[in-house]
Design a protein around this nucleic acid. Structure first.
Lengths: 230, 230
DNA sequence: TTTGAGTGTGACGAATTTATTACAGACTAA
DNA sequence: TTAGTCTGTAATAAATTCGTCACACTCAAA
């Protein structure tokens, strides 16, 4: 269960399905959209680490959308890989001009796709050899599956670990219970929203043992936030 | 100038040549044969450390030869990596049945080839620079096949030894049961995941006799970790 | 102060995951 | 061959985790 989310935007259902399967098998968490409109919605409440974008799309074209995203400060850092039709050299050039991070010419092999994705992620620092997330004196090491606070090791359950991992990679941001369920539990399970509260409680209890209870903050009416600042 | 001899058996001259070059560059000493007959001769008077064997061969097929070798006591230990054509899943299954140590699906990258070869050689103990791995007061000597803790020598079975070897070369890192099976048992065998648990248990028991039971740690939901730290 | 929605908390049973044991077949050395 | 070891698997036990619920508490608007 990687938490590398990849947003696929592709109108052809067959290719979309193929991409989804390939990415899943490669250990990513893909989300697919058929056109820009729904992609935009997904973008709003999920937090993809990379977008795989078809060049030709009905309605707003992929290029056009990419151009917009690259102009938007809050999405500028989000890597985009364009999928172009065979041999349209010109497109490639234009694609890179608008700031796409890579392009891939159809047809491509699954292997190549995954390799390119990894390369881009690595370049943007999201896929690192260094597997540590450091926040203050909190260290979460995904490779060792360890959560330490100062010198002390915290004993957390798998779900708590994933929750912490998500929080620590998105500090200072408020997330609704639904968003947390989507991100930490996965989009495909249905679970009561209140369950999040319980897990938050458990996390706070553990953190509280080390005087760090206030790291997880309640934002009444919205959800929770993880932050070093009060 | 390695003394690792690798016997290549491949009928297509182009691929044979490519393999030879790749292996040479990787520091191995390749010897190539176009079919089983000449391979058999080479086998008789040179002593390869590993065979890279094409699945499809004129005359006796690669599989058939592999099967024979694996039955012959004097060659049983000789690792074999099968080269299979793309997507022939069935072949893989048969490949592992006859006891191949790994398989590689064409086309493959030189990098992957070399990595797999190294892995297999390491697993069979033939690739070791310094033969000792030292961790705390634990010493694992791959050449003498010995595991000592302080002054005491531990009596471990072959599988336990390989498991320890893998753990000691990758300390502090969590591995899933699948990863352990791939790395310690080999990619081409199908074994129940639970079997790992049993071997872990056996290892712990042995280590426990010397007060080192806690070296192998359970990471619930993920797998196991070998670490000197709690 | 009242009221109701939003949140915190402890408990519980079910589900999941891991540990342990026993056993049969394969293999090895004598 | 034979006794003994090694290994994978299945069965069972033990431990942990997880989602829900019921009820207590908070907060803010009226």
């Amino acid at each position: 269960m990687s938490n590398i989310n990849i947003l696929i935007v592709e109108d052809e259902a067959a290719i979309r399905g193929m991409l989804t399967i390939v990415l899943e098998q490669a250990g990513f968490s893909p989300i697919a959209a058929a056109e820009v409109d729904s992609a935009q919605k997904i973008l709003a409440d999920t937090f993809p680490d990379l977008i795989l974008l078809d060049w030709m799309l009905p309605g707003i074209s992929g290029v056009e959308w990419a151009r917009r995203l690259k102009k938007d400060p809050s999405y500028r850092e989000l890597p985009i890989i364009l999928l172009t039709a065979r041999g349209e050299e010109e497109d490639k050039v234009r694609g890179l001009e608008i700031g796409a991070d890579d392009y891939l010419t159809k047809p491509f092999s699954p292997k190549e796709l995954v390799a390119r994705i990894r390369a881009v992620l690595r370049r943007s620092g999201k896929l690192q050899g260094g597997t540590q997330i450091v926040l203050g004196n909190l260290i979460l090491d995904t490779e060792q599956h360890r959560l330490t606070i100062g010198e002390k090791q915290l004993d957390v359950s798998p779900t708590e670990f994933r929750l912490m991992q998500f929080f620590m990679t998105h500090p200072d941001k408020v997330f609704s219970r639904t968003q947390l369920l989507d991100q930490v539990w996965g989009r495909s399970v249905y679970i009561e929203e209140r369950t999040v509260d319980v897990h938050i409680r458990r996390l706070r209890k553990i953190l509280g043992d080390y005087g760090k209870e206030e790291l997880v903050q309640t934002v009444r009416g919205f959800g929770y936030r993880f932050s070093l600042i009060d």
